[in-house]
Amino acid sequence: MRPARAFIDLDALRHNYRLARELGGHKALAVVKADAYGHGAVRCARALEPEADGFGVACIEEALELREAGIRAPILLLEGFFQADELALIDRHDLWCVVQATWQIEAIERARLQRPLTVWLKLDSGMHRLGLAPDEYRACLQRLRALPQVREVVAMTHFSRADELDSHRTQEQLENFHRVIDGQGVGGSQMTASVANSAALLGWPAIRAQFARPGLMLYGATPFAAPHPLADRLRPVMTLESQVIAVRELGEGEPVGYGARFVTERPTRVGVVAIGYADGYPQFAPNGTPIWIDGQPGRVIGRVSMDMLTVDLDGHPEAGIGSRVELWGNHIRAGRLAERAATSAYRLLCGLKRVPRTYLGG
């Protein structure tokens, strides 16, 4: 069997979820969309369900996968529904639903449901992607509250630049949000709200609402370009490993791999590792990108191929065929690799393909 493997540490996942809830101060909706950012949505949800306040997914297909696997906790459709006929499935499977446009409200008004919905009404506070404009939000809120098809309405928004700690945009968006929703609670109470994604939880600790929505941080990756004391408390959940499958003894001046992007400057032992860009490793990781060989730091040399990459074995005299190579994980953080490869930790984790996952920690 091909030796490439992704090890998923479920204890680390639970640790990161608890940190998110601690920072949020109230409840935390664990975001497991995109197959839990490449970690396996069903297994991650099962690991978190005993303590999670609910889960967030992108679409109804992802929600149904969790329900079919026996997940009974609340599940929020973060993009809402795309056609009115999805409301029947939302009703049948007791899903929570984001509403971000007036046509969705009209669809709910026409729907014949077995039970009332929990709706998360999204405000466009300045990201300008999805959400109702501030001048129409309150009217839509009252419209939903008047419907027998609606049980509860939660106010939500999404920050566009919370990962930029020197930007004023997050505070501006928060002020816009409160300008619209303050005073809109029922019976004088504060309206239930959700504003904080991973970057807001870690980088803006003063921002709190009843529901946090941690995503990237659950999986142990930082949303920030620079070290951050709270992000440093995260534990990587995925360790991507493979093995050396061949060793080449090359002389000085020999090219390695496609395009001769690396040429040896001295006699060099080169290890060939069974992993490549078809598995999700970045194709254009530069020469010198860090990896870990048998528990010691090493480096990638040459261009990454579809199924293989090459590493420098000089300084690793005991390494050879069968040596373990960590591509990212506890020693090589996904964010560090992403920075070297001009990509993002989101793309690395979500882009994992063709690699079997092994789950640790129950």
Results as ranks from 00 to 15, higher is better:
residue 72 R to S: 15
residue 73 A to S: 15
residue 16 N to Y: 09
residue 67 R to C: 01
residue 38 G to W: 02
residue 79 E to C: 00
residue 85 D to L: 03
residue 92 R to C: 00
residue 108 I to Y: 12
residue 62 E to S: 05
residue 113 L to N: 07
residue 46 R to A: 14
residue 26 H to K: 13
residue 71 I to D: 06
residue 48 L to E: 12
residue 33 K to M: 05
residue 119 V to F: 07
residue 59 C to E: 07
residue 34 A to S: 14
residue 75 I to Y: 02
residue 78 L to W: 07
residue 22 E to R: 15
residue 85 D to E: 15
residue 76 L to T: 07
residue 87 L to F: 09
residue 112 R to M: 04
residue 20 A to L: 00
residue 40 G to F: 04
residue 69 A to K: 11
residue 61 E to Y: 05
residue 58 A to H: 05
residue 46 R to L: 15
residue 75 I to C: 00
residue 82 F to W: 12
residue 23 L to I: 06
residue 109 E to N: 02
residue 78 L to N: 01
residue 39 H to I: 02
residue 90 I to C: 13
residue 45 A to D: 13
residue 121 L to P: 09
residue 38 G to A: 02
residue 107 A to C: 10
residue 17 Y to I: 05
residue 120 W to A: 13
residue 103 W to M: 03
residue 94 D to L: 02
residue 87 L to N: 11
residue 73 A to M: 03
residue 59 C to V: 06
residue 113 L to E: 05
residue 68 E to T: 08
residue 55 F to Q: 00
residue 30 A to V: 09
residue 48 L to Y: 13
residue 39 H to N: 15
residue 74 P to S: 07
residue 17 Y to D: 05
residue 74 P to W: 05
residue 59 C to K: 11
residue 43 R to E: 15
residue 85 D to G: 03
residue 121 L to R: 11
residue 25 G to C: 05
residue 74 P to Q: 09
residue 35 D to K: 07
residue 67 R to V: 03
residue 52 A to H: 06
residue 71 I to T: 08
residue 105 I to F: 06
residue 99 V to Q: 04
residue 108 I to H: 13
residue 38 G to C: 00
residue 118 T to Q: 10
residue 41 A to M: 09
residue 42 V to T: 14
residue 112 R to V: 14
residue 116 P to H: 07
residue 67 R to W: 01
residue 109 E to W: 00
residue 34 A to P: 04
residue 61 E to F: 00
residue 63 A to C: 07
residue 93 H to R: 07
residue 117 L to R: 12
residue 61 E to N: 08
residue 50 P to D: 11
residue 109 E to I: 01
residue 92 R to V: 02
residue 46 R to N: 06
residue 55 F to G: 01
residue 32 V to F: 03
residue 36 A to Q: 08
residue 63 A to E: 09
residue 49 E to T: 13
residue 28 A to G: 12
residue 28 A to P: 11
residue 37 Y to L: 10
residue 122 K to L: 14
residue 113 L to T: 08
residue 58 A to R: 06
residue 77 L to W: 05
residue 75 I to W: 01
residue 52 A to M: 02
residue 37 Y to I: 08
residue 110 R to I: 01
residue 109 E to Y: 01
residue 62 E to M: 01
residue 54 G to E: 04
residue 124 D to S: 07
residue 119 V to Q: 10
residue 99 V to E: 04
residue 45 A to T: 12
residue 27 K to F: 12
residue 38 G to F: 02
residue 65 E to C: 04
residue 94 D to I: 02
residue 116 P to L: 03
residue 56 G to M: 01
residue 60 I to V: 14
residue 30 A to N: 09
residue 107 A to G: 08
residue 109 E to S: 09
residue 65 E to A: 15
residue 62 E to T: 10
residue 84 A to G: 11
residue 117 L to C: 11
residue 86 E to I: 04
residue 45 A to L: 10
residue 51 E to K: 01
residue 51 E to V: 13
residue 63 A to N: 09
residue 16 N to V: 11
residue 110 R to L: 10
residue 36 A to Y: 06
